[in-house]
C-alpha cells in the first residue's frame, strides 16, 4: 500500500479522531501483548473497574489473534497479525478487534457467537462451565475466551464478517464496556 502513492498517512491519522484511545495493527507476539496490556492499564487507570475489564478482554482477544489469525508475521515471530482499537465515549468504552480467518472457520465461529449472544448472564455462565469441563486444546480454547469476553463486557458480541477472497474473510468482534 505504501509504495503506490495512494496511501495517505494524513488521512489515516486524522480518521482516528479524539475518541480513539489506542490503535494497533501488526503481529500479536508476546512482547507486543505485554506492551499494549501495560499501556491499557496505564491509560485506563483512572477508571479501574472498566480498565480491568478492558485489560481482561484485551488479553483474551489478543491471544486469539496471536494463535488463530489466518495471517502471520512471516519474517519474525510467526505470531498472528490483527488489529485492535479502543475508543472512549461519553458513557462507555468500545473495544474492537479483527483479524483474517479462513473461510471454512467462519461458520463455526459465527455459530459460537450466535449461541453466546442468545444467552442471558446465567446461561452464559453455565455455557462457560460446560465448555471448561471439556479437554483443553493446544492453546486453551478460543471458545471460552469469547464467552469470557461477553461475560466481562456484560454486553453482547457485535460481530462482522467481511469476505476478502476465496481463502479468507476479515472477522471483527466489537464490545461495549460501560464506564
Amino acid at each position: 500500500m505504501l509504495d503506490n502513492q495512494k496511501f495517505s498517512l494524513y488521512n489515516y491519522h486524522t480518521n482516528f479522531d479524539k475518541d480513539i484511545l489506542m490503535s494497533y495493527k501488526g503481529p500479536f507476539d508476546k512482547h507486543i501483548l505485554a506492551i499494549l496490556g501495560n499501556y491499557i492499564e496505564v491509560i485506563l487507570g483512572r477508571n479501574p473497574k472498566a480498565g480491568k475489564k478492558i485489560f481482561k478482554i484485551f488479553i483474551e482477544l489478543a491471544q486469539n489473534i496471536s494463535f488463530y489469525s489466518a495471517e502471520n508475521d512471516k519474517l519474525g515471530t510467526l505470531a498472528g497479525i490483527g488489529t485492535v482499537v479502543i475508543g472512549e465515549f461519553e458513557g462507555h468504552y468500545t473495544f474492537v478487534s479483527g483479524n483474517l480467518v479462513r473461510n471454512e472457520d467462519v461458520v463455526p465461529i459465527m455459530e459460537k457467537c450466535e449461541i453466546i449472544n442468545s444467552l442471558d448472564r446465567e446461561g452464559l455462565r453455565k455455557y462457560k462451565r460446560d465448555m471448561r469441563g471439556t479437554p483443553q486444546g493446544e492453546h486453551g480454547s478460543a471458545h471460552i475466551g469469547l464467552i469470557q469476553v461477553a461475560l466481562t463486557a456484560e454486553a453482547p458480541l457485535d460481530i462482522e464478517v467481511t469476505p476478502v477472497d476465496n481463502q479468507v474473510s476479515f472477522f471483527t468482534v466489537s464490545v461495549k464496556i460501560e464506564k
Binding site: 485489560f55 481482561k56 483474551e60 471448561r132 486453551g140 471460552i144
Partner: peptide, 12 residues
C-alpha cells in the same frame, strides 16, 4: 487478582 481463561482451567 487476575487469571486468563487458560489459567482458569488449571485452577479448576
Amino acid at each position: 487478582t487476575y487469571f486468563n481463561t487458560s489459567s482458569s482451567r488449571c485452577i479448576l
